[in-house]
């Protein structure tokens, strides 16, 4: 899970987008409520569509089409003209719209820290889950021993 990197560049914006993508609908609604649920108009109504997920031959070679994923996208404009976008796996239009509003808010200097703080709980929950998952996986790490065949 990427850290919210406390910057203003594309990488920082991507980190916030990744957090929104990892958040549940309820978490995003909660984060937005904590920021006063700002008004926003749709530039494009939330829409469900497809993205063709591609892999690479051998993991690192020429791309090939693995199969599609459902994606919901939203684009909003705040009263002050800031625009925000969201693209999420799945078909939850409301969640994508909330993420687009958070993306728009984050682009204003004054709201940036507030958005990152509102998503702090999501970051902690995601990090805790990832750590627990890593610990459960680590318990199944195996050290195979090769036994002599005893042929001679």
């Amino acid at each position: 899970m990427p850290d919210v990197s406390r910057g203003s560049g594309t990488e920082a914006r991507r980190a916030v987008m990744a957090l929104c993508a990892a958040a549940t609908g309820a978490e995003l609604a909660g984060a937005l409520a904590g920021l006063g649920t700002p008004e926003a108009e749709d530039i494009r109504a939330p829409e469900v569509g497809l993205v063709m997920a591609t892999g690479r031959i051998g993991g690192d070679g020429r791309p090939f089409n693995l199969g599609e994923v459902t994606v919901t996208r939203a684009a909003v404009r705040l009263a002050d003209g800031r625009t925000g976008f969201a693209y999420h796996l799945g078909r939850d239009r409301r969640r994508a719209r909330h993420a687009a509003i958070l993306d728009a808010l984050w682009q204003g200097e004054a709201d940036r820290r507030g958005v990152e703080a509102a998503l702090g709980a999501v970051a902690r929950r995601a990090a805790d889950e990832a750590a627990a998952q890593a610990r459960r996986t680590a318990a199944t790490r195996v050290d195979f021993l090769t036994l002599a065949r005893g042929e001679d």
């Binding site: 993205v51 063709m52 693209y87 996986t137």
Partner: peptide, 19 residues
Amino acid sequence: LPRFGASVPLDTGRMTLSR
């Protein structure tokens, strides 16, 4: 459904492994 486009190729080398 409409197709928005194609993804960046998945980087399986950076997979979060469960097995």
